[in-house]
Computed example of a mutant assay.
Amino acid sequence: MTINSLYIYDRHCTCVYYQDWHRTRRPKPAVEGGILPAVSQAVSPPKPAATTSGSISGFTSPRDTLSSGSGIVVALNDMVAQSPVTPLLQTAAPPVALSSTGLAFDEEAKLVYGVVLSLRNMIKKLSGRDEQFVNYRTSAYKLHLYETPSGYKFVMLSDPNTDSLRFVLRQIYIGPFLEYVVRNPLVSMDSREHGIDNEYFRASIDRLVRGLSVFS
């Protein structure tokens, strides 16, 4: 049994966090403006390539003493080529080359949320307001949902034979989410401008998920 990925949506239906573990086909990076900043560097839109002079555009600062033809690169940080290895995540498994699904992440995130919203509304109409949508299964995966009182939705995809992971999503909410997001004064909740990804939050979720008996 495996755990594939985690999505967190705010009450404005926007994906504010993403993380994956056992995905063999990762979505393409989102288009520019398709997702908020600080959701996940793995699926962030590609940034314009920097020139040898360190300038992203054609603008050259008058204080730049190195000519573009010098052949010297002072500092070049390519965020698209690889995600930075932070101290908290150095113990994680090395990155593996993954093929692409052919679908941009912003489109994938919308599809996942659309499925959750449609099934939740259908269950409420057919079974009454007391019934809750917690998971559904296909031949390829199983989707688990935990919704907080404030409207945040935690969605996890796993192996179809995995038992309910609703308790895991609740652990993520009452643990790392409350500690590193809600109580963090540097994180703007419901800002509609930024996601909620930060080093401690991501590392804490990674430790929690990798410590589960269903993780393999």
Rank of each mutant, 00 (worst) to 15 (best):
L89H: 01
S53R: 08
S55L: 01
D106V: 04
P149T: 01
S150I: 01
S55P: 04
V116A: 02
G69F: 03
S100M: 02
G151F: 10
P62M: 08
S213M: 05
M1Y: 06
L119P: 05
L119G: 04
F105C: 07
G69V: 04
A104Y: 05
L157I: 09
R166F: 00
F133D: 01
A50K: 11
V39Q: 05
L165N: 06
Y18G: 05
D106W: 01
V214F: 00
L165H: 06
P29V: 14
S213K: 09
A104C: 13
S118W: 03
L98E: 07
G58F: 02
I56R: 14
I174T: 12
D206P: 03
S61Q: 00
K28V: 14
P37N: 11
M122Q: 14
R192T: 15
L88Y: 07
A49R: 10
T14H: 07
F105S: 06
V31L: 14
G211Y: 02
L157N: 09
V85D: 09
S70W: 00
G69T: 12
T86G: 08
V85K: 11
V31Y: 11
I123T: 12
F154A: 06
Y141D: 07
A49V: 10
M122L: 14
P149D: 05
G69R: 09
D190W: 15
E199Y: 12
E193T: 14
Y200A: 12
S99F: 02
G211Q: 03
T14Q: 15
I205Q: 00
S61N: 05
P45G: 05
F215N: 04
L126A: 06
R183N: 15
M122K: 13
Y200M: 10
S100C: 04
Y173R: 06
D163W: 01
Y9S: 07
V209Q: 03
Y113P: 04
R26C: 04
C15I: 08
S150P: 01
A93P: 04
S61A: 03
E107R: 09
P87H: 02
A81Q: 10
M189F: 13
V96H: 08
C15W: 03
L66T: 07
S191V: 12
S204P: 09
E131R: 10
S68E: 06
I172T: 08
V39T: 07
G114S: 03
S70A: 03
P48C: 09
V74R: 11
Y17P: 10
Q90R: 13
L126F: 01
D64S: 02
V112Q: 08
V85M: 11
D64H: 01
R183V: 13
I172N: 05
R166T: 14
C13Y: 07
S67P: 02
H12G: 13
R183P: 11
S67A: 01
T14E: 15
R63I: 11
G211V: 09
V112S: 04
F59T: 04
V43L: 13
P87G: 00
T86L: 13
P37E: 07
L145E: 03
G33R: 13
M122T: 15
V134S: 07
V187K: 15
G34Y: 02
S118E: 08
L208M: 05
F133E: 01
N121C: 04
H194R: 08
L88I: 07
P87L: 03
L66H: 03
I123Q: 11
I174Y: 10
R207N: 05
F167A: 14
K47W: 02
V115I: 15
R207D: 08
N135F: 07
M189G: 05
E179V: 15
